[in-house]
Amino acid sequence: MKKGRGLRLRRKITNALMLAAAALSAAFGLVWLLWIMATLVRKGLPAINWAFFTQLPSPPGTPGGGLANAIVGTLIVTGLATAIGVPVGILAGTYLAEFGRGSAFAKTVRFVADVLVSAPSIVIGVFVYAIVVMAMHGFSAIAGAVALALIMIPVVVRVTEEILNLVPDQLREAALALGAPYWKVVLAICYRRALGGMTTGILLAVARVSGETAPLLFTALNSPFWTPSLDKPIATLNVTLFNYAMSPYDDWRGMAWGAALLITFGVLATTVLARVVVGRIRI
């Protein structure tokens, strides 16, 4: 009887300890998020003013100056990458969901895309350096966009496929029974039904690549000026942040915190927006 009570007590204590550890783990994660966010706001906000968005970078020691060219550069490179990556990803994803399905070819593509989703982005940067930068004999906005597009494509492929798989087969069969050819079923029925989910997926992919720095370091490089054309190096917020943060100048570091705040809130806002959209539109 006594022995049984001791055992029960020990089990209860183990249980309490383990559950406390689990709750602490969750708290541990939250602490980091709050700590990083608080730092960003505290150090980043003072750097953000009108000049930050409208002026070109100034040399260290000179007051004023902003990151207008880097902000526009980030938009250009990310926009180009989206324009390349999204159509390619959607078409490939359409094949997997609508035509390939269980075939060996489709399975291989699915597996490779899944692995590529997590592949190190810096390796993609090295690859683009070898095929685009070396071939064009120089760093360029285009090379940066290609690198980001290659990172984006596998994500879009998998998202497209998963969302299209959620479209019920009865819808396709109904449309086919009315005599619609299959391409029309895909374009007018499946895509329309999957629109909300695909938008979410694409937003998440865009958010992800807009925070990428590693693949831009030696493809798009950087520039302190406005970029005259897309075959020239271009400034992006991320690479500028890297250079400024690593510099010994206090005013550049302050500017880097401003850039960090802007990037993080851009990425997080897009991510949350995407999640809220998918929460609303039920598939």
């Binding site: 969750a26 994660g29 939250l30 980091w32 998020l33 700590w35 990083i36 730092t39 960003l40 150090k43 958010a207 992800r208 925070g211 990428e212 720095t213 590693a214 991320n238 942040l241 890297f242 943060a245 570091r253 880097a256 915190w257 960090a260 990037i263 993080t264 990425v267 997080l268 991510t271 999640r275």
Partner: peptide
């Protein structure tokens, strides 16, 4: 959602925060 946000914070932000804070 908050834990997933940790994955959305760009790598370079972790780096900068890690170095200076």
């Amino acid at each position: 959602l908050a834990i997933e946000m940790l994955a959305a914070i760009p790598s370079i932000i972790y780096g900068m925060w890690g170095l200076f804070v």
